[in-house]
Structure formats: C-alpha cells, structure tokens
Design a protein around this nucleic acid. Structure first.
Lengths: 148, 148
DNA sequence: CATATATAGTTCGACATCGTATCAATCAAG
DNA sequence: CTTGATTGATACGATGTCGAACTATATATG
C-alpha cells in the first residue's frame, strides 16, 4: 500500500476522533447536570430497541467493558431514570427497565436537539449522511471483528 | 425535520462514537507501554507540522483544555520523547521540541500500522474512504464553528 | 450428583480528562 | 512608570474509564 493511501486512512481516524469529541461536547451541553453522553446513549437505546436488556448486553452493544456499564447504569439509576430488577431467568443477572422520568428526559433532549440538527443539515445533507453511514458501519464491523 | 431524519443523524453520531473507541484501542494496542493515543497524536503533529510549538498552541490544535495538554506533554517528556525548553520570546511560555527517540517511536508505530491498514482496506476501499472523508470534514468544521 | 469451568455483576485501584484556582510574566491604559 | 487586565502554565480535586480480582450463580462433564 502506498504511503498516500496510508495517510488517507490515518486522516479518517483523526477526523473521527475530533468528531467524537465535538459531538459529545455538543450533546452534553444540552443534558441535565450530572448526565453525560453514555447515559443518554443507553437511555436512547432502551427506548428505540426496547428495555429489559441485561447490563452485559448493553456493554456489548456499546463496546465498553462491563465495569464501565455498571458505572453508567448506577448513574442512571441514581437519577431515577432507570430501574434495575433481577432477571427471573438467571439469578446472576439483572434487567434494566426504563422509568417514565427516563423517557421524559430523553424526549426533552431530543426535542431540544431537533433545531440544532437542522443547523447541521445545512452543512451536511441527509443524503450525504445516508451515503456515509453504511461505509462507517462496514468499518466498525471490521474493526470489531479484528478486535479478537 | 421528520423524526426519521433525526434518527439518521443520531445514528451517525453513535457510529462515530463506537468507531472512535475501536480505533483508539486499535492504535493503543500497538504503542509502547504507558503511551496512549493523545501522546501519539501530539508526536505525529510535531513531526508533520514541525516542532517548536507552545503547549497552548497544541491544546488549541487538538481542541483540548490546556490542562489536559500539560498532562499529555508531561507523559511524553517522562518517556524521553520530547523536550520542553523555555520560550525565549515569552517568559511565561515554553516550547516543545522533538527528541530523536520521539521520531523513532512514531516512525516505528506508523510502520507497524501499515499492514493493519491493508487489512482494513479489504473491508473499506480507498475509494470509499475518499468518498467519506470530505463529508466528515464538512461536519467537523460546522460543529467546530457551532462550538462558539 | 459432584466438581470444574464459564458467566453476570460489583469492588477496587490506576490513570486520563477537565474545571477551578493559582502564580508568573506580559500587555494595555493612563 | 504604575496599575489592572490578560495570558501561559501548573497544581489540585472531582469524576469517568477500564483492567484485575472477587462473589454468586449457572452450565458442562464425568
């Protein structure tokens, strides 16, 4: 592989790094005090995919160590946004359930974000996002598999 | 903006978040013990753009608080990869200089990464990356400006 | 059934990030 | 020149991330 090709991949990772930083700051500026991006990510997942997942399942979904997920879930629980109940099917495990407050908080954040996204849409069109997304997903799946 | 459009942007940010995590892990697995991605990023910058920058300049470049940059530079110095010398033009400030060991470490890491990128190329072609990159850059520039 | 192994979750410790406060040097205004 | 505001860098404290070790339960194997 020529050096120039290397540098393009390199540039992609660099861009991803900066974007992650910026988008996280962007989101967290609009979250209630004490809540950060991972909290919102989990909440959002519980709503769009459905609650009742176990912590390990969530950890796998978000590609974080289970110990990080424990911490994130503790925060959500402390803020009264989710509830942890035992898993009747497995005595070792728990299940995470949304509380109405969690849904409310997520909806409010989404609503606050709506107008912001319209701003973003002036820079990057919906079509462009739809063009980029499958490629990034391919890359993510590859890296995920390479991780083992 | 319809809800479905919202969710596509959301998905993009989610994908970016996971990719950042995976690619950072990927890089750090190939760095010497005690060094992490920010160290490599700074080193790389000093080589490609030239050394002699001040810590604040570096902090601005990488969009991190200056206190984080202090920490990162302390790590690089401790590992003997860079050298901090006073800035003759400003008594408050310092300048960061590459040491030969720093250049050597960076080059070795780049070399180790080359074959890995070839693996990635089987999943995502060079053309696809070139297609994605300008769009991500547009998004990054927009978010960067919106930050103020 | 008994024992070995694997898995879910937590605790603990190491370390990174970052906001606030602080210090020293510079710059600006009069 | 003097004084007040600004800027570069660091120290410190709070919090997030994550690996290692641990406990409890489940599963597999003989």
């Amino acid at each position: 592989m020529p050096d120039t090709a290397n540098s393009v991949y390199f540039q992609l990772f660099k861009e991803i790094g900066i974007l992650e930083q910026l988008s996280r700051a962007f989101l967290e500026a609009r979250l209630p005090d004490g809540l950060i991006a991972p909290h919102f990510g989990v909440l959002n997942h519980l709503i769009s995919v459905g609650d009742g997942s176990t912590p390990v399942e969530l950890a796998r979904t978000f590609q974080v160590p289970k110990t990080s997920m424990t911490h994130t879930l503790a925060g959500l629980e402390k803020h009264g946004l989710v509830e942890m109940r035992p898993n009747p099917a497995d005595g070792r495990s728990k299940k995470v359930w949304l509380k109405p407050e969690g849904r409310k908080m997520r909806d409010a954040t989404i609503a606050a974000l709506g107008p912001e996204f319209e701003g973003i849409a002036t820079a990057v069109s919906l079509g462009e996002v739809e063009q980029v997304l499958p490629i990034l997903t391919k890359l993510r799946v590859f890296l995920d598999n390479a991780r083992n």
